[in-house]
Amino acid sequence: MRSTFYFLAFLAICLELSCIDRHPKADLVLFNGNIYTLNETQPKAEALAVADGKIVYVGNNVNANQWVADTTSIIDLEGKTLTPGFIEGHGHLMGIGENLLNLDLLETRSFNEIVELVKAKVDSAKDGEWILGRGWHQDKWFVLPENMIDGFPTHHKLSEISPNNPVVLSHASGHAVLANAKALELAGITRDTPNPEGGTIFKDL
């Protein structure tokens, strides 16, 4: 009877050790963190394990140890805060609002199309009224205009259809503008104007 008891105890220990050995291991384990989970039932944790690019464990340091193998990368967060990753479309809310208030050029597919939209706006505007637009991108143009400088069109076509209205059209990135002759005149920009720090004024000299 006693031998049977010892055998069963030994068997139980072997099974337990076997289960431990078969526990899946993680590629990465983070310890000692202030982890925000956004899970109402478990709002915070101190450890996290990742396997095959997926989070497989979120909880305490003690239980996180079972995910550690010889090949596991370990990071001690030292109490630092960890939050879920944010996926953001990089939308500029002010720019989106400006698109609605002014000429929306996001869907334009050629410089000529932009010129036509500006002309329609000029035809209904008073002399001296600013024509503003945003969203053009030369990489979306199916047909490229003539006389481009470093991949950007010159002002001449815009200036021809808007001699009395300053026109400024911002690039989709916000890092470039197309301006007509009237806008350049009001800004005091001439052929002799030096490039601003960190920028370039394209000139068809």
Rank of each mutant, 00 (worst) to 15 (best):
T4R: 12
F5I: 08
Y6L: 02
A9S: 10
F10D: 09
F10Y: 11
A12L: 10
I13G: 04
I13S: 07
I13A: 14
C14Q: 13
C14L: 12
L17P: 01
L17M: 12
L17W: 13
S18N: 11
S18L: 09
S18T: 13
I20E: 14
R22M: 14
R22Q: 13
H23N: 11
K25W: 09
A26K: 00
L28H: 03
V29S: 02
L30G: 01
I35V: 09
T37Y: 02
L38T: 15
N39M: 06
T41V: 12
P43M: 09
P43T: 15
A45C: 06
E46G: 01
A47Y: 06
A47E: 03
V50L: 12
A51V: 15
A51D: 03
D52N: 07
K54R: 14
I55N: 10
V56N: 05
V58G: 02
G59R: 01
N60W: 11
N60T: 14
N63V: 03
N63R: 05
A64E: 04
N65V: 05
W67Q: 00
W67N: 00
W67F: 10
W67I: 06
A69H: 07
A69C: 07
D70E: 14
S73P: 01
S73N: 11
I75Q: 09
I75D: 08
D76H: 04
D76W: 01
E78S: 07
G79C: 06
K80G: 14
T81S: 10
T81W: 09
T81A: 08
T81F: 06
T81G: 03
T81K: 04
T83K: 04
G85P: 02
I87G: 11
G89S: 14
H90V: 07
H90T: 12
H92M: 09
H92N: 15
M94E: 15
M94P: 08
I96Q: 13
I96C: 08
E98I: 02
N99S: 15
L100I: 13
E107Y: 09
R109A: 13
R109E: 15
N112A: 09
E113W: 08
E113T: 01
V115W: 02
V115G: 03
E116I: 05
E116K: 15
K119A: 13
D123F: 06
D123S: 13
A125Y: 05
K126S: 15
K126Y: 12
D127P: 03
D127H: 04
E129S: 10
W130F: 11
L132P: 00
G135K: 01
W136L: 03
Q138P: 01
Q138W: 05
K140T: 12
W141H: 04
F142H: 12
P145L: 05
N147F: 15
N147A: 12
I149R: 07
I149E: 08
D150Q: 14
D150F: 09
G151C: 07
G151P: 02
P153M: 04
T154S: 07
L158I: 02
S159M: 03
E160S: 03
I161W: 08
S162D: 11
N164Y: 11
A172W: 08
A176V: 05
L178F: 11
A181P: 01
A183Y: 10
L184E: 06
A187N: 07
R191A: 14
D192Y: 09
D192K: 10
T193V: 01
P194C: 04
P196E: 11
E197Y: 11
G198W: 06
T200V: 10
T200N: 08
T200E: 13
I201D: 03
F202Q: 07
D204I: 13
L205S: 12
